[in-house]
Computed example of a mutant assay.
Amino acid sequence: MKLKDGIALLSLAALWGASFLFIRIASPVFGPILTIQGRVIIAAFALVLYLVITKKSLHFKKRWRQYLIIGALNAAIPFTLIATSALHLPASMSSILNSLTPLFTALVVFVWTKEKLSIRKLIGIIVGLIGVILLVGWSSIPFTYDVKIAIGLAVLSTISYGIAGVYAKKAFDRVPPLSLAAGQQIGAAIILLPFTFLNFTASTEKVSGVAILAVLGLALFCTAIAYLLYFYLIESVGPTKTLSVTFLIPVFGIIWGVLILKEHITLGMLFGFLVILCGVFLISDIRLRVITSNKRMQV
Rank of each mutant, 00 (worst) to 15 (best):
I276G: 08
M93F: 02
F143H: 14
A168G: 15
V215C: 08
F172P: 05
L270I: 11
T196R: 05
G217D: 05
P28Q: 05
G71S: 01
L100E: 04
I42T: 09
A154Y: 09
L216D: 02
A26L: 04
A202S: 12
I163F: 15
D285I: 00
L15D: 04
L100N: 14
F247H: 06
A182P: 10
Q185L: 14
I283H: 03
L156T: 07
K116D: 00
I186C: 05
H264F: 04
A26N: 04
H88P: 03
V147S: 13
A226W: 07
R174V: 09
I159E: 13
S160W: 15
L49H: 04
M93T: 07
A76H: 03
T242Q: 01
I36K: 10
F30Y: 12
P194V: 07
K206E: 13
V210A: 10
Y232F: 13
F45I: 12
R24C: 07
A72H: 04
A214S: 13
F30P: 00
G17W: 01
T242V: 10
T196W: 13
K262M: 06
L261W: 07
V215T: 03
G124P: 02
L228C: 04
V132G: 02
V111F: 15
L218N: 11
W16C: 02
L153Y: 15
K206N: 14
